[in-house]
Amino acid sequence: MSVNLQKGQKISLEKEAGGALSRVVMGLGWDAVKSKGFFGFGGGSAEIDLDASCIMFDTNNRPVDVIWFRQLKSRDGSVSHSGDNRTGAGDGDDEQVSVALNDVPADVKSIVFTVNSFTGQSFAQVNNAYCRLVNAADGKEVARFNLSVQGSHSAQIMAKLYRHNGEWKMHAIGENGTGRTFDDLLPQIVPHL
């Protein structure tokens, strides 16, 4: 049974999954808003290139590695990205980031997941956006966070996985932001670390 997270909510991954997790997948999905054609006929949807990124922070809240469409694997190998989906077409997750929790270096305190509109459109043109955490061992969804707050923002700080008293937890951040890549979001992420 998956937990439907609310903005700001924090959960223990072990409690929600019913035991220790070794590998999780953060899935991101979205659809482009369909435009209405002439007199409501025709139309279609614009292609929107949302990009999932994952920033690893150390105990001093400094970024130590970034996993995104230009670097699909962390230098230590514990985090990997499925690759860039430039349209959001199709059902299910459009991009996925896999995290081997037991292999994340001990000096990494938190892993923050962001999404940016690389093509520059605002989230007013995005429908059904979500992120979900899945237990890779059995494919079961542990938690889901619906992101479809439409508006003029072009990015969102979705969630973070973090260590607390020796266990991994998840914090649904859901903070709207601005920028085409994770770099633009770094100043907005720091208060959430």
Rank of each mutant, 00 (worst) to 15 (best):
residue 75 R to T: 14
residue 191 P to H: 01
residue 123 F to L: 06
residue 167 E to K: 15
residue 94 D to H: 03
residue 108 V to G: 10
residue 30 W to N: 08
residue 187 P to K: 00
residue 46 A to C: 03
residue 187 P to Y: 00
residue 26 M to W: 09
residue 62 R to F: 00
residue 71 Q to L: 12
residue 75 R to A: 15
residue 131 C to A: 14
residue 28 L to E: 11
residue 59 T to M: 01
residue 92 G to L: 10
residue 100 A to W: 04
residue 33 V to A: 13
residue 193 L to P: 02
residue 171 H to L: 15
residue 145 F to L: 07
residue 118 F to K: 03
residue 108 V to I: 15
residue 148 S to A: 12
residue 130 Y to N: 03
residue 79 V to E: 09
residue 121 Q to Y: 15
residue 167 E to I: 12
residue 63 P to T: 09
residue 79 V to A: 12
residue 114 T to W: 10
residue 11 I to W: 04
residue 174 G to K: 05
residue 173 I to V: 14
residue 50 L to G: 01
residue 178 T to C: 05
residue 39 F to E: 13
residue 90 G to K: 07
residue 127 N to Y: 08
residue 129 A to H: 02
residue 57 F to Y: 08
residue 70 R to S: 14
residue 112 V to W: 13
residue 109 K to T: 08
residue 45 S to H: 14
residue 146 N to K: 11
residue 101 L to H: 03
residue 101 L to A: 03
residue 50 L to T: 00
residue 128 N to C: 03
residue 7 K to H: 11
residue 170 M to N: 02
residue 49 D to I: 06
residue 177 G to R: 01
residue 133 L to S: 00
residue 27 G to P: 00
residue 24 V to N: 03
residue 116 N to R: 09
residue 16 E to F: 05
residue 165 N to E: 15
residue 51 D to V: 07
residue 25 V to W: 06
residue 109 K to C: 11
residue 71 Q to C: 10
residue 123 F to A: 04
residue 76 D to T: 12
residue 113 F to K: 11
residue 109 K to N: 14
residue 164 H to P: 05
residue 112 V to G: 09
residue 18 G to F: 13
residue 67 I to V: 15
residue 193 L to Q: 07
residue 74 S to F: 11
residue 166 G to C: 08
residue 187 P to G: 01
residue 64 V to I: 06
residue 55 I to F: 02
residue 106 A to C: 09
residue 92 G to K: 05
residue 104 V to T: 07
residue 181 T to K: 11
